[in-house]
């Protein structure tokens, strides 16, 4: 799997990390009923960072990034996004959601709307952008993800890879400052994974702050500036990708890496 994204040389020089803090998570805890899904998470993400979160299934990595735009509610600790704390205040939640883009495993495109309408919906209704302007922006981003000619089709008429790229374009139309990816390639056929990863790499090269939950270790190696390994609801290890893959320190990480890279 690691070869998939390896064939295009990547210019890492453009991916600069600034000192400005984009996301800060402090002592965050979350329970599902009795089950302690996230335990004492501390994480600071600076602007321009590309973070890959890896870990076995059920380790809480999806829950972690879903907490960042409050698709899940955390019960203790703080999450501060762009200087705004996520509390039960609806205005803050709406503000953060419109600043943070998200791509889902199953795309979650709106099947009753065309590709173009999917992309213009939120700018028009949340950002109150005039329709014409929203459509221009949408076409711009659809060109960026290389499917402008599909704009008038419905999601059901597109392949999985194309749908995921539309989902990325849909998020970008809100001009987000942070992008969250929740296993964006897990539901895709193997030959479609590359087109989505290429889009994500391009995004990274433009300096987007990204948090990706993914099993694409090739992508992590090339693009990420930090890899976080989670298990049993906690951050077990984090490091730069080279170090992480070549010199894993914790036993859990070694076991995990041997299992997914072993063959």
């Amino acid at each position: 799997m690691s070869e998939l994204a390896m064939d295009t040389p990547i210019d890492r020089s453009a991916m600069k990390v600034s000192d400005e803090v984009a996301i800060e998570i402090r002592n965050m805890n979350k329970w599902y009923g009795q089950f302690h899904v996230l335990r004492d998470i501390n994480l600071t993400v600076n602007r321009g960072e590309r973070i890959v979160i890896a870990g076995p299934s059920g380790s809480g990595k999806s829950t972690l990034i879903r907490c960042i735009n409050r698709l899940e509610e955390h019960q203790a600790g703080q999450i501060i996004v762009d200087g705004t704390e996520l509390t039960s205040d609806l205005k803050n939640i709406d503000k953060i959601r419109s600043e943070v883009g998200m791509c889902f495993q199953h795309f979650n495109l709106f099947p009753h709307l065309t590709i173009l309408e999917n992309c213009t919906l939120a700018p028009i209704w949340v950002r109150k952008v005039p329709r014409k302007e929203a459509e221009e922006t949408a076409m711009h981003f659809l060109e960026k993800v290389k499917i402008p000619d599909q704009a008038l089709k419905y999601p059901g008429q597109l392949s999985g890879g194309q749908q995921q790229r539309v989902a990325i374009a849909r998020s970008l139309c809100m001009k987000p400052r942070i992008m969250l990816f929740d296993e964006p390639t897990s539901a895709l056929d193997p030959e479609m994974i590359k087109e989505v990863l290429d889009t994500m790499i391009e995004l990274a090269q433009e300096g987007m702050t990204m948090l990706c939950v993914t099993h694409e270790m090739g992508f992590a190696r090339q693009v990420a500036n930090r890899v976080i390994f989670m298990d049993q609801g906690q951050i077990v290890e984090q490091n730069e990708p080279e170090e992480f893959f070549n010199n894993p320190r914790s036993e859990r990480t070694k076991l995990f890496l041997s299992q997914i890279l072993g063959h």
Partner: peptide
Amino acid sequence: MTTLTDPP
């Protein structure tokens, strides 16, 4: 590197 104060 962070200079975040506690929110009021």
